[in-house]
Amino acid sequence: MEITQRAFLLPISQYLRSQGWLVDAVAAEIKTCTACQSSYDRIYEIDWTRNPLNLRNLTRASAQVRKIVERGDYDLVHVHTPVAAFVTRYALRNLRRIGKPKIIYTAHGFHFHRNGRPLSNAIFLGLEKLAGRWTDYLVVINREDEAAARRYRIVPPERVRYMPGIGIDLDQYTAERVSQEDIKRVREELKLEERHKLLLMVAAFDPGKRHKDAIEALALLRRKEVVLAFAGEGPLRPRIEELAQRVGVAEQVRFLGFRKDIPALMRASVATVLTSEREGLPRAVMESMALGVPVIGADARGTRDLLESGAGIVVPVGNVVALAEAMQYLINHPEEADRMGKHGLGVIRAYDLANILRLHVELYDEALREKRSAVFNA
């Protein structure tokens, strides 16, 4: 939860409050987030889970949301994460008859997508269309989702808004902020010699991230000087560690856990890798581009948006041979890797946090017709 808040919501809240808005937030375990306490006017703990099948979300949690919103007399509610977004819109569906609050939903990647299974796609599309009835504006952050929202009329097409992600602070993520000492420290920690070439994947160990593809591609390379590092935690980490042992590349793999020095790790790498089958607009790719480091990404929406103009190499999802070939190419062609990294610096400017903040304020002004009162994030 805290990672989501820091990466997605806190910069927006902090900016809005600096402009005179009142901003409250509701989330599970939000009181454990120290940064949240100073970044919102009020925070509320909510009793919901990430499990979409948990009926408590539509009973107890829904009642909690409605009570908070009625007491707060909010003009606008902006929802984000999938379960919270559905529960909140369900809870407030009857309040919309009086036109208050206005409800905005940012979809950080629909759960139905071109790489998904037909049955799950049908279920998730049905849920999105149902919740779309209770939504005033739908914000999408990649072009595939924008096309799908319009094609399936999840909300009326004129109520769909494309925004290039949730923003990345290009003053914070820049190569100039990473010193050679930082890079040296990282390489020493990872026990890398001068001959070693580092590839980095930043992603939680969840099924859709497909870490196994990166391990299997590394095995295909048969190059002992190539080291693959994973930054992140998650339930599948033990299985991926076992796979690295089984295919004979354990000595070439580093499991780093949760890290706070991602920029240094990226700058120490030949390229970053993201093998996910589903993404909204991956922050790891955005950060890599902002730091001038090329990306090898699986052909998932969002990743495709960021890389298709030449900031890296896009490979088919699950194609281990193509992934290995892309790794080989960037390792063998450092000049081309450098060119891709520099190209990414130009592309990522459209995703600058300042641009995203401007787009949010424009949307809020449209929704409220210039009337500013309070914002509620879920």
Rank of each mutant, 00 (worst) to 15 (best):
V87A: 02
E194Q: 14
V227W: 00
T88G: 01
R369Q: 15
T272Y: 03
R159W: 02
K100Y: 11
T34E: 15
N94S: 14
A311S: 13
R187E: 10
L345A: 01
A374F: 04
E287A: 09
N94E: 14
S309R: 10
V249S: 02
Q64T: 11
T49P: 08
Q14Y: 10
M327H: 00
G310F: 03
A61I: 02
A326E: 00
A290K: 10
P118H: 11
Q180N: 15
S120H: 13
L170W: 05
E242D: 13
R304A: 00
D47E: 13
R301N: 12
A214W: 08
I168P: 11
L76D: 06
F8D: 07
K260Q: 12
G116M: 04
A203W: 00
V79E: 08
V26E: 04
L190P: 02
T49S: 15
I123S: 08
P282R: 07
V178S: 05
R143I: 03
V314H: 09
G20R: 03
M1G: 14
H343M: 15
D206T: 14
P11F: 00
I103W: 06
R369G: 12
H196E: 12
V77H: 07
N319P: 09
N94H: 14
R56G: 15
I183G: 06
P294V: 05
F255C: 10
K100G: 07
G302F: 01
F258G: 06
L53K: 11
R97C: 01
I296M: 10
A284C: 14
M163T: 06
A337K: 09
I123E: 01
A219K: 12
E325D: 13
L323W: 09
T106D: 08
L58S: 14
K342M: 11
A268Q: 05
P235C: 00
K342W: 05
L190R: 01
L228V: 12
A175Q: 06
D145S: 00
S39A: 15
D261R: 03
I154H: 04
S39Y: 03
L218S: 07
D75W: 02
D171F: 11
E233I: 12
S276R: 01
L22R: 15
P263G: 04
H211R: 03
Y74K: 04
T32R: 13
P207C: 02
A35T: 13
L125D: 03
F205W: 00
V87M: 07
P282Y: 09
R93P: 07
Q19I: 03
E362Y: 11
R177E: 00
L58K: 08
S39R: 11
T34K: 15
L363R: 05
S373P: 06
A25E: 05
A374R: 15
A204P: 03
L228G: 07
I123V: 14
L127Q: 06
V375M: 12
E193Q: 13
